[in-house]
Simulated assay, not measured.
Amino acid sequence: MLEKTILVTGFGPFRDHDINASWQAVQLLDASDFAGYKLVKHEVPVTYDYIDKNIARLWEEHKPIFVLHVGLAEGVNVVRLESLARRKFYQKADASGALHPTEEVCPADKGPLVHIPQIDVGRIVGELDSDQLRFIESTEAGLYLCEYIFYTSMNIDNSRILFTHVPNVDEPYSVEELARGLTMIIHSALQQLEENENNNDK
């Protein structure tokens, strides 16, 4: 049986963002909000090389029951849940200035052109969206490190993984509000996973 570990990642600095709002929000997640689970938080450098060398290791090390990757979306004012990730067309330089040598997460024989999470993103948005904290579903994760890490994890296991984009802090939400939004997403996802497990046991 899988250990009940929740793995949440946020990204480190990139471009003119010396502090990344995604990691700020992840850092504020409180383990006491997830009784019965071990909460692991991990900061990911914004480089292709780090993701290639470490994401599979994190899955193997922690054997998470659920993974949430969090990234920063510039110019948005909502919490955005991504509903797909593409295998190729990664043409932007990462935070180290490096371009991806193949522009692909993996060769064609190692993964589909598009990965879709099995967790119902639309259901989560429907459950959580409110005037106090807006959530939307997105099919455009940006073809940068955010989408790259999402595809990488889904290529390991797409049944217990989500990716969420957050806006910059105070545009319009405080970091505390962003952390609350992430907490809500995790609880909603865990509920779906529990329901699926119960259905499989019947």
Rank of each mutant, 00 (worst) to 15 (best):
E43N: 11
E82I: 07
F163Y: 10
G126H: 04
D109P: 06
N20F: 03
R87S: 09
E140S: 13
S96N: 13
D157F: 01
P167W: 08
L113C: 01
E74V: 10
G10L: 07
H42S: 01
N200S: 15
D120E: 10
A179T: 02
A21P: 14
Y144T: 06
T164V: 11
E195V: 11
E176M: 09
P172C: 02
A56Y: 09
N198Q: 12
I116Q: 05
I149A: 14
H69E: 01
L128F: 09
S96D: 15
L81Q: 06
M154K: 01
I136C: 09
M1W: 07
K92L: 13
D201W: 04
E3R: 12
G75K: 07
E74R: 11
T47M: 04
Y148D: 08
V8Y: 02
V166T: 08
P112D: 07
R86A: 08
G36E: 07
V26D: 03
T9D: 02
G122Q: 11
A95D: 13
I136L: 10
L29F: 04
I124M: 11
T47P: 03
D49W: 07
V175G: 06
A35L: 13
A25H: 10
M154F: 06
F135K: 00
H115Y: 12
Q27W: 00
M184C: 05
Y37H: 14
T5H: 13
I156H: 02
A21Y: 08
